[in-house]
């Protein structure tokens, strides 16, 4: 490595830059090979390649994509592209990241995606990373079966796949709608609140449903008083008649309350006659009774309707 001109200065500038151009092209080619996602992106932009698409009703679209969306895309999506890997589309998933493909159709054992989600949480390479909940066994099974069946974008069902988890949508309170609903009965509510102070309340600030706690009035609240509540029956969801003077005479009134979900009658004068009538209560989910108020035979029809029965100290 002496610095005199013995070893060096043998090339013309044209020859040298020709070699540099060749090396640059070769390097760019290698870089393209090392980053297949980049290379495919270039080819697709130039219209020389078509991105694979999954059908909208395919197993991928209905089972795999939603799973990836909730578990992976926050780090492997448009906003973040960890390891140059995107999992927010069928084409991107098949393309893989900077370390190559993460899916090998038909070969679960060598599919990096499945390997990573199957690692124990203590493993540094486990995905999702520490601090984020791991995939459930059912979710892993969905991924495993999909890869094993060829990672198809067309296949609609896969034998042995666990059933999808039902999506529960919790209705959002709409204060404006609640105000409108309240307006319809506002006059009656005000009148009855004045008659039975402290017993009639709205379920919440954004609800038109009513809770009636007549137990506060004790024996002063009887069948006639319950009948007075009839104008509100469409909105009464919880009714506490514990310790009141209400009798079986009111059974049809109670059974006819369309929104009544929870009823407490312990310590009242109602018997198994009322309890039998409550089979007709459409919305009833919970009934609290006093000890000895009804035998198992009387309660059986309600239990068949999956109404929760509470009695004595077990009351909710």
């Amino acid at each position: 490595m002496e610095d005199r001109a013995g070893l060096s200065g043998r090339l013309s500038a044209a020859a040298y830059f020709g070699c540099v151009a060749l090396l640059t092209l070769a390097g760019a080619g290698l870089a393209m090979l090392a980053r297949p996602a980049f290379a495919h992106g270039v080819l697709r932009t130039l219209g020389l390649e078509t991105a694979p698409q999954a059908q909208s009703r395919s197993f991928y679209a209905t089972r795999v994509a939603p799973l990836l969306e909730t578990r992976c895309v926050s780090c492997h999506g448009a906003r973040r592209e960890k390891a140059s890997l995107r999992l927010d589309s069928f084409a991107a998933l098949l393309l893989g990241g900077k370390h190559g493909p993460v899916i090998r159709p038909g070969d679960v054992r060598n599919s990096e995606l499945y390997i990573r989600i199957s690692l124990p949480a203590s493993d540094e390479r486990a995905m999702p990373p520490s601090g984020k909940p791991p995939l459930t066994e059912d979710e892993k099974t969905v991924i495993r079966l999909w890869i094993a069946d060829g990672a198809s974008g067309a296949l609609q069902t896969i034998a042995g796949a666990p059933p999808p988890v039902a999506e529960v949508k919790i209705p959002q309170d709409d204060p404006a709608a609640a105000q409108k609903q309240r307006a319809a009965l506002a006059q009656s509510v005000r009148r009855l609140q004045a008659r039975f102070p402290g017993t009639i309340l709205y379920e919440s600030r954004s609800s038109a449903n009513l809770e009636v706690n007549a137990s506060l009035l004790g024996s002063a609240f009887g069948d006639a008083e319950l009948l007075a509540l009839l104008p509100l029956q469409a909105r009464i969801t919880r009714l506490d008649l514990s310790g009141t003077a209400v009798t079986d005479t009111s059974a049809p009134v109670l059974a006819g309350m369309p929104a009544l979900r929870s009823l407490r009658i312990g310590g009242s004068r109602m018997t198994q006659v009322t309890i039998a009538a409550l089979r007709q209560a459409r919305a009833l989910k919970s009934l609290t009774i006093g000890s000895g108020q009804a035998g198992h035979g009387a309660l059986a029809p309600l239990l068949e309707k999956h109404i929760a029965i509470y009695g004595g100290g077990d009351a909710p």
Binding site: M1, L11, Y16
Partner: peptide, 9 residues
Amino acid sequence: FYLLVKGDN
């Protein structure tokens, strides 16, 4: 370039 063309290491 300096090494191979100009002879300057």
